[in-house]
Design a protein around this nucleic acid. Structure first.
Lengths: 128, 128
DNA sequence: CGGCATCCTCGTGGATACTG
DNA sequence: CAGTATCCACGAGGATGCCG
């Protein structure tokens, strides 16, 4: 490889779709919200309460992005103090399914990663 | 906290492993490098050339992180002008496998996402 | 309640230069 | 060639305040 004058434009070209998705996924809040909504329709402040550490700005902003991408749907319930429900869309569900292996991996291999880190940090120079 | 009265603390608590992995994945360069190395051992500047838009700082930095996490291995070949080869580790391979569905999803659904975006941008307020 | 606007900070990451 | 160190700009994102 490397020789193929033009190898598959998988992820190395900036205009690749995978890059775009990766950027979305890179938005950690987006993934968290997606996973959360995959479990059921949730209201704005409920999401805020559930997701530890998210600011209202980020939540709002991320939800809007997700909605724009067609991954999440927004439903306004015109009660007295307005209520808003967010739900995952079928498309969003498919992304959730694609992300899930990653979640599994995390839980399965996090220990190995942390072990490697310790090995790297300590073993790097202080070969005590 | 510790599962007080809520649902499983999968990804909503800041101390969750998934969060950490998500942050790694969030590093788009990391994923790109991982995918690239999954195809074969590659040298530093070769990586730089292959990955469009990456700076040497980011490449160096990301490679170091990946190495620290035990996802990538580094091999120095003491030739005259030193040469360094990077390869994916077995652990890295497993992560790559977990990320792959995401890549597939991207290529499969990117069109739907972009359609949704157009719908959102234009459809929301066509008077512009 | 849900959400937008403003301000301000602080980390991310590019460009550059220098070393082994 | 492979990397490190420095400087610096930019924008992500938290805090706050106000409105539907």
């Amino acid at each position: 490889m490397g020789a193929s004058a033009h190898l598959s434009p998988d992820v190395f070209a900036a205009d690749c779709p995978t890059r775009r998705v990766l950027d979305r996924i890179g938005d950690k809040w987006a993934v968290l919200i997606l996973i959360l909504l995959a479990r059921g329709t949730t209201r704005f402040n409920e999401l805020r309460r559930l997701i530890d550490g998210i600011s209202q700005k980020m939540l709002s902003q991320t939800l809007k992005s997700l909605e724009r991408d067609g991954l999440v749907s927004r439903r306004v319930i015109p009660t007295v103090p307005v209520a808003v429900e967010y739900a995952i869309t079928p498309l969003g569900r498919t992304l959730h399914d694609a992300v899930d292996p990653l979640r599994i991996w995390a839980e399965t291999h996090i220990a190995a990663v942390e072990a490697a880190q310790k090995r790297y940090d300590g073993g790097g120079q202080a070969s005590a």
